[in-house]
Design a protein around this nucleic acid. Structure first.
Lengths: 300, 300
DNA sequence: GACATTCTCTGACCTTAGTCAGACGAATGC
DNA sequence: GCATTCGTCTGACTAAGGTCAGAGAATGTC
């Protein structure tokens, strides 16, 4: 058994120990719903509606519920006067759900109880230990979120890709000394970033884009990685390296035996990451005015 | 609203954010039981039996189950050939439960699945990030355990107190250059450490003692804190300060207006903690040959 | 305008989880 | 030796959670 395996096992054991102890002690937080006398399912639904009202369809996918079951839960909340269900004006098949004033009060009550429980748990700790616990949980939260985010292939002109690229462009515009003008490259080059010639990948968490990147053909069996971006709040959790590895795999699957990319010197973290990932510097291979560093890596 | 309150609220918010994200992503770990086709309750029971076989009574208290319900679950596992239930030889009312070879295989299967899940979660992370996550979870685990441990008053000669004091004595014996001999003080002084003259407190976690301490009367409205000890693995989580504060409260409730204690210079963490907690140094007030530092604190 | 699709809702049905009251046998106190 | 206590087990019951197969209305497609 290799060192890497034993290391993984040791960390998995820590994770399991944490899970066991934590759910036993803090898992009661979920039962805080029960303090309201409302069944767990109904309370979860009420909470979700309050957090983000919308169509029953969206609720169904967010909570992973059967449509018949959701319908019944909604009717129950409706009969208690907590939610209002009305047909969608645009599409008469859909229903829109929102809280009534009474429902908002019940929601506030849930929030308050949940906060009380959290404060009760922290109560016995000193301020310094609370800060340590919060820091540890924030770190764990970031890493777990990064580890569980899924990289989905999407059309480069579809909504998730547009949102991610917009964030990418906005960041470059802010960080580059002279700003950044993407020109019309977005829609004009879209066909090169979609099958069969290329691909575009977006990672979303709770509906918001947190990372993206694409591969387009360069000719001569080469691929080029474009528009790679990771949400600032998600950096330092390995999402960038993971995305890069993923895109290399995509490029390989497209039949390329080498992948290239360019970047600007302002993006120091990116340059460091490419070097860590085994990229070697090559000469300029395009006319991109923003590009200052050029990298290439052979695909196994 | 004071700074202390906003600080607490901020940390509570981190805790809640973690809970929400974590249970959503990793909470599925509990459902790993479901991967076996066994209902959650039965799987939990099987797991507990495998972890520590014993009487149904012990299982009932560990899992918090109704006796009728437990009986039914056991019969179910029995009919599947996974557990064996036999009357206790000493007390014919009790039943002893253990796994059959088939049950042990099912238990190993649960373990394997749980480990696989944990490894799958860690898989996308690099070794460095896995180490960071494991460190963060271990820190959070320690602090949460310390925050949720309860301090129970017990008789100084009862089993939990004996176990804790034995650990305390063993540690002093190891750390003191010339070893430590408690003499007969244990049973002879016991009456001073129990109501109405004094008290003894033990903190246990999963059945094992993790901290202890007692208060005995010194006369003249003074109390003395004795045999204060925190399990080495639990240090650095504020359990010591919490226990100390708790014992001060116990002393106050016993009618004391000052509390004293002695300690050995080898125990540097303890000395530092007493000073942090507002104790002032006083002259020798007893003949304890192991005591080098003497402290006192007025109780509000 | 016909047809397929999409969506919500209802009824029927099932398992799981859990509670409660009492029966029965074993142990304990006197 | 007898009453009491303790522990297990059974039957009866309930609520929650969830699945499945349509009915029926609205919408999109040709």
């Amino acid at each position: 058994m290799s060192d890497a395996t034993t290391e993984l096992d040791a960390h998995a054991a820590v994770l399991r120990r944490f899970n066991r102890g934590y759910t036993q002690r803090v898992g009661a937080l979920d039962d805080s719903f029960l303090g309201t006398g409302m069944p767990l399912g109904a309370a979860r639904l009420l909470f979700e509606i309050g957090a983000e009202p919308g169509t029953t369809r969206a609720l169904r996918s967010r909570l992973g519920l059967d449509s018949g079951y959701l319908s019944r839960l909604l009717r129950r909340l409706e009969s208690q006067g907590l939610v209002a269900v009305v047909p969608d004006t645009a599409d008469g098949r859909l229903r829109r759900v929102d809280l009534t004033p009474a429902g908002r009060r019940a929601w506030d009550d849930l929030e308050r109880r949940s906060g009380d429980r959290a404060r009760d748990l922290l109560g016995p700790l000193t301020a310094r230990q609370r800060a340590r616990l919060a820091a540890a949980l924030a770190e764990a939260d970031l890493l777990v979120r990064a580890a569980t985010v899924t990289l989905e292939p999407v059309d480069p002109l579809a909504a998730p890709a547009r949102a991610a690229v917009a964030a990418y462009v906005a960041e470059l515009d802010e960080r580059f000394p002279g700003g950044f003008d993407p020109g019309d490259s977005g829609s004009a080059d879209a066909h090169r970033l979609r099958p069969p010639s290329g691909a575009f990948v977006v990672a979303t968490s709770d509906g918001a884009p947190v990372a993206c990147g694409g591969v387009q053909p360069l000719g001569d069996g080469r691929g080029e990685i474009k528009r790679m971006w990771v949400h600032p709040a998600w950096r330092g959790a390995g999402l960038g390296s993971r995305l890069l590895r993923h895109l290399e795999g995509v490029s390989r699957d497209l039949g390329h035996d080498e992948v290239r990319l360019d970047t600007n010197g302002t993006l120091v973290e990116a340059v460091a990451m490419y070097e860590r990932a085994g990229y070697r510097r090559v000469g300029r291979y395009n006319e991109n005015p923003y590009a200052e560093h050029f990298f290439a890596k052979r695909l196994a």
